[in-house]
């Protein structure tokens, strides 16, 4: 079973490709919620019915390929060790609540890890696609294709007025959640982020810090996504999100120029200090690691640090999550360079 790749490798293969505006937007995600028409939703707790959904998905789609999405592999929650599940959660391939569905939960993951279809989470299917950089439209197109492919075989619950029917009324209609993960260190440094978040909320979008609920965003990573799924077309939802993200990108670029000019040597000092800590420390708290990684990534994007790969932030953000560290320490400890010696 090649399940081991999903768990052993710190970053998903898709993260290695470069996307648009990827000095600020790390990744774009599209999620479509779908349900089988004749089967009770997972929220009903009808285990027998859900087992049938799982069996069907395995029979029809395990080891299949569709266009860009090669070798979809069905991974059942009941076959995974707790630490393996946590790694999949930290790589965002599955959600924490799917990890708890030991009986009937599963995920269909493509080889590139770009597509992950969660089975029997809150809805029967949650089709998720990840793209590097700012590629929401592309991600939406591919998600629609994948949805069409499933639809050739599955009759999804749909109503003329309410659209695709989902367990939660907050997802009904398009079932679409579009989101981007943004690195906004300059807006955070200049305190503008605190004014920006309420403005973005007013437009019906949700802003979340990436790691840690509610608290300050670790590593200056923010996720922006649409709230409303009913009453707008998929294209309009994505276009509206894109126009806001574009403005945030412009603001962050301007703030970066400003801090370069105003802070000069102080900024360089901060960045190279963080670089020094990451390169030389032997024990580091994950919170400090996140701050240093954010600084180093900014240093790379500003051209101050030249010999470190851009994907370092993606890789290390995953690496510094507790479950991954545990897994990594078991398998690869000998390979860890000083740069990676991040311990919780």
């Amino acid at each position: 079973m090649s399940l081991q790749n999903f768990i052993n490798d710190a970053i998903s293969p898709w993260m290695n490709t470069e996307g648009l505006d990827n000095d600020i937007v790390l990744s774009s995600r599209i999620r479509l919620a779908r349900n089988f028409e004749q089967v009770s939703f997972p929220t009903s707790g009808d285990q027998e019915a859900l087992s049938k959904v799982l069996e069907y998905m395995q029979q029809e789609f395990d080891q299949q390929s569709y266009k860009d999405f090669k070798q979809l592999q069905l991974v059942k929650m009941k076959d995974l060790k707790p630490v393996e599940k946590r790694v999949l959660v930290e790589k965002h391939l599955i959600s924490p609540s799917l990890a708890e569905k030991d009986e009937t939960g599963a995920a269909l993951i493509s080889k590139s890890e770009q597509a992950s279809i969660m089975i029997n989470e809150e809805d029967h299917l949650r089709i998720q696609l990840y793209y590097p950089g700012f590629e929401l439209s592309e991600a939406l197109n591919k998600a629609q294709e994948l949805d069409d492919w499933f639809e050739e075989k599955i009759r999804f619950a749909f109503d003329e007025n309410r659209g695709y029917l989902t367990s939660c009324p907050t997802n009904a209609g398009t079932g679409l959640r579009a989101s981007v993960m943004m690195h906004l260190p300059a807006l955070a440094m200049t305190n503008q982020i605190n004014n920006l978040i309420p403005e973005i909320n007013k437009l019906g979008l949700v802003v979340r810090g990436i790691y840690g609920e509610g608290s300050e965003a670790q590593g200056q990573l923010y996720q922006i996504s649409n709230q409303m799924t009913l009453g707008k077309s998929e294209e309009d939802i994505v276009e509206d999100l894109k126009s806001v993200v574009k403005q945030v990108i412009e603001n962050e670029r301007r703030a970066r120029e400003w801090i370069m000019e105003q802070l000069g040597i102080q900024l360089e000092d901060r960045i190279f200090r963080s670089y020094g800590i990451l390169a030389n420390s032997r024990i580091i708290q994950s919170k400090e690691a996140a701050k240093c990684l954010s600084d180093v990534r900014l240093g790379i994007d500003l051209g101050l640090i030249k010999d470190v790969s851009k994907t370092i932030l993606n890789e290390l953000m995953v690496l510094t999550q507790p479950a991954f560290l545990q897994q990594y320490a078991n398998k690869h400890y000998h390979q860890m360079s000083a740069m990676y010696s991040v311990l919780i």
């Binding site: 109503d159 007025n161 309410r162 659209g163 009324p169 009904a172 209609g173 409303m228 009913l230 009453g231």
Partner: peptide, 24 residues
């Protein structure tokens, strides 16, 4: 009883205008 609920969570909207499955 659903219209008020959908209005609440979808900024006043109650009707789907997006994708339609081919089979429909």
């Amino acid at each position: 009883y659903l219209n008020p609920i959908f209005r609440r969570v979808h900024s006043g909207n109650t009707k789907h205008v997006g994708k339609i499955p081919k089979r429909v």
